[in-house]
Design a protein around this nucleic acid. Structure first.
Lengths: 169, 169
DNA sequence: ACTCTGAGTATAGGAAAGTAAACTCAGATG
DNA sequence: CATCTGAGTTTACTTTCCTATACTCAGAGT
C-alpha cells in the first residue's frame, strides 16, 4: 500500500467511501462520449465514414442529434472538419478523426471485444479487426509498463496526485 | 483486402454504407453498459465497493436508478449477489463482479486513460493503477495475436462471419 | 412489543434526451 | 432563374432521467 494511502487510513479515512468520486477520469470521459450516439458515430468514423449523410444513413440517428453530437465532437477536438468536393457539386464539410479521437479507440475496442465474446450472434462477429502489418487478429488488453500482460484482477488502484476527499455534507 | 470483401465490392456494395450497422458488438455492449450510471457502478465495484449503501453514498446516484442498474447488471451476469453479515445484524446482499464483468475492465481502463490524458485536473489523476505483481503503471493497449503493439491507425476492419447487409428500405 | 438499520420500493414533478418530420440554405446545373 | 442536393435547423411530441421524499420490510437488540 502507498504511503499516501496509509496516512489517509491512519486518519480514519476509507479510501473507497470517503474519496470524491466525481473527481474521476472515467466520469469525465463519459461526459464527452457517454451520450447515446457518440460512440457509434466514432465507430463509423473509424470504419471510414466522414459525411453527415453517411452517418445518418448507416446509423439511422436523428439529424438534430447527429448535428449536435458532431458539433460537440469537433469542439472537443475528437473530430476535425475538412472539406470535400464531388465533381459538379460545391464544397461540403466532412469529419475526420484526430489523434485525440484515435486515443479513444482502445476503449472502443474494449467494448467491441466484450460484445464479440458475450453478445455476438451465433455465427460470430459482424466485423473483425486485424493488424494491417501482419494480418493477425487484434484486441484490447491491459499491459504494464514493464511489458507484462496484466489480468484485471492483478490491477491495484491507489490514490494519485489529485486524490481528494468528498466535500462535507 | 479479404475475399468476402472483394466479392461484395464487385457486387457494387459499399462495405461502410450498406452494411447492417445495428448488427454490431459495440452497439450490443452499449445496450448493457450504455446507461448513465452503469459504468460508474462498475468502477465502484472494481474499486472495492459492494453494498447498496456504499454505491449510493459515493456515487450520489438516486436509489431507484441504483436499484434498477444493479438488478440489470445481475441479470446480465456482470455482477453476482452474495451475502455479508455484520456482527449483530442480519445477512444482507452484496454485489461482486463476475469474470464476465471483469472482461469489461479493459474498456473501462480505456476510458480511464483517455480521461487521465485529456481531462485530468492539472495535478494529475485522482487514482492510479499499477500491476500488483511488479508495481509498474498499467494501461489499455491494443495488441495483435502475434504480440505486436498495434497503433489504432494500423488496424484494418473487415467483414466477419456474421456480416449482413442493411435491410431494404 | 418497540426500535433501529440497511436495503430497497413507490410516487410525483421537472429537466433533459430522443424521435420524427417539415423547413432552410448555399451553390451547381439546366 | 427554377431546380436539385447535401447539410443542416426548427418544432412538436414522447420517453427517459433526475431529484426528493415517503414508505416498506426483515431481522437483531432492548
Amino acid at each position: 500500500m502507498d504511503a499516501t494511502a496509509e496516512a489517509l487510513q491512519d486518519a480514519g479515512v476509507d479510501l473507497r467511501l470517503d474519496r470524491d468520486a466525481s473527481n474521476c477520469s472515467i466520469a469525465r470521459t463519459l461526459e464527452v462520449v457517454g451520450e447515446k450516439w457518440t460512440i457509434l458515430i466514432l465507430r463509423e468514423v473509424y470504419y471510414g465514414s466522414s459525411r453527415f449523410g453517411e452517418f445518418e444513413r448507416v446509423l439511422g440517428c436523428p439529424r438534430n442529434l447527429l448535428a449536435a453530437r458532431l458539433r460537440m465532437l469537433v469542439e472537443e477536438g475528437i473530430l476535425a472538419v475538412e472539406t470535400y468536393k464531388e465533381p459538379g457539386a460545391r464544397s461540403r464539410p466532412k469529419y475526420v478523426i484526430t489523434p485525440k479521437g484515435m486515443d479513444l479507440i482502445p476503449a472502443v475496442m474494449g467494448l467491441l471485444q466484450w460484445g464479440d465474446r458475450y453478445r455476438a450472434d451465433p455465427e460470430g462477429p459482424a466485423m473483425v479487426s486485424r493488424h494491417r502489418g501482419c494480418g493477425a487478429h487484434v484486441d484490447a488488453r491491459i499491459r504494464c509498463d514493464r511489458g507484462h500482460a496484466v489480468e484485471p484482477v492483478d490491477i491495484e488502484s491507489i490514490p494519485g496526485p489529485a486524490f481528494r476527499l468528498r466535500p462535507a455534507e
